[in-house]
Amino acid sequence: MSKVSQFFKRFYLGLVLFFLYIPIVVLIIQSFNAGKSRAKWEGFSFTWYEQLFHNTSIMNALWVTVSVAVLATIVSTIIGTLAAIGIHAMKKRPQAVMMTLTNLPNTMPDIVTGVSLMLLFIFANIPRSYTTMLLAHISFDIPYVILSVLPKLKQMNRHTYEAALDLGATPHYALLHVLIPECRQGIVTGALLAFTLSLDDFTISYFTTSPNVQNLSTLIYSATKLGISPTYYALSSLMFVVLLVLLLVVNKRTKEA
């Protein structure tokens, strides 16, 4: 009985994962297809990978995507961690207000967030550009950092910080050597989450950038209208592999530590 149910469980999970992975496998296979057609296999080749590095618009978009993701992650992690520490120390009423405002962007659909930020930039007469997109990314990243750090602060013993102060630590020292290390796990999770979201964001970027500054998602979106070239498959396959390797490295390091 137990063996049968064990097999069934594995089989079911396997099916769900198959469903999740099949489009990705198809995409990776197509990136090696010599022909341009999606339907026919015309032999193995690296053509699309070669073209990828000669395609300036893709390379520009890649630069925009990665730099926005990195900058947004750094800024939102700093602001978000400070905010989580601050919110944690607040009295009940202001804390509730802050938490509502922090949860609000999460529950608002992306498209409404994007549109509202677009209205803000138009209203303030700021032309949409790289910077506006970066500001938008920071805004939607911060809540995720806060929501990752806050639980760690809540789990922490409340008196640790006070004990550090009583033992003569300056607040500055106690912050750096007691509070931050205690919630390091949460900060890392938040930063990773922010980076992933920023890297993959389409809707909000679409509304907050100008047509001259495109990230990968908006570039792909405009390319779909003309029929998409397998160069994009090559690009996303490469990014996928890079991220996978990064994950394995991080995983190995955390296991050793």
Binding site: P23, I24, V26, L27, Q30, T196, L199, D200, F202, L216, S217, I220, Y221, T224, I228, Y232, Y233, S236, M239, F240, L243, L244
Partner: peptide, 10 residues
């Protein structure tokens, strides 16, 4: 991690 638009296109 695969771009959401490309997954849909796949």
């Amino acid at each position: 991690w695969m771009n959401f638009l490309l997954r849909t296109i796949a």
